[in-house]
Amino acid sequence: MNLENAVETVGLTKSYGNVKALDGLSLNVRRGEILVLLGPNGSGKTTLLHLLSTVLKPTSGTAKVMGYDIVKQPLKVRESIGISFQEPRGFWRHKPYHILSFHAAIYGLTGEEKMQVVEKTLRDFDLWPSRNKRFMELSGGQGKRLEVAKLFVHRPGVAVFDEPTAMVDLEGKRMIWDRIRALREAGSTIIVATNEVREAEYLADRISIMKSGKELVTENLRTLKDSITGGDVVEVGLSTAISDQMLQVVTGVPGTVRVLQESESMLKVFVNRSEDWLPQMMFSVQSLGAKVTSIRVSEPSLDDVFLHYTGKVVVKQANA
């Protein structure tokens, strides 16, 4: 195992009967990074997280967490990892204070230290006023925050969050994201599974896009956006009317994917990397004696990247 990696999987597969929930996944998570698993429902994100945290046993393949094999050394793995489940886990009649106290005790906190950590965590997650409510009486958002809060009690080496802000309001989302980033700053490696693009953009050092139990691509956000052919859109205003020769020159600039003439002196050009393309285009246009009067660049959003890789099509609803 590469010491730079907190998690390594090789050919990791989990099948339920004939259905492969995870299909030969090979993935590395670097120490100290936030890796976001982005994928549609049923893409295998949760299955991967459950395998890493030893809730599930793989059908085949291997995975190591902090150097420990999830099948051969499950106890060591459990000491290194913590998971915040997609759905909050707790007995109906237990109360948030007791749930976190139990969690703290399991990880060796005792006495005053335990009480202080539990109180701080409850306060940090805005759960202190609800500490004596029964689990079944918590709202969806409170239950979710309690589930996330567990990992801030024992601060594992690898912290795994499955849709950490589902059911949480906007203010709560931002609070949870900031705390997850702070957890990384404190030294934890973070894996977040989500299908919320904004969450991925806010948190990720790298994003792994998954579909049908497979990893499609794992890169940082910049590289992912750049990887879309013709993803950057540049609108160029020129000082003169656009001639055929001008169109030919612009089309010939390296990185140009498609050129549309929007008006007499305006071009819309789809390019791979606008930052590489623009200087070359300026030079070419100036060599024909024209001047660039305006430039507007828009890069693809993570939505575009996600849809590009997962092959999903956004269907606009027809007006009734």
Binding site: S53, L75, R78, F85, F91, I106
Partner: peptide
């Protein structure tokens, strides 16, 4: 309700 799954993630054999 998934509490047993939670127990399986804890450092207990």
């Amino acid at each position: 309700e998934g509490v047993s799954q939670y127990y399986l993630t804890l450092p207990v054999s």
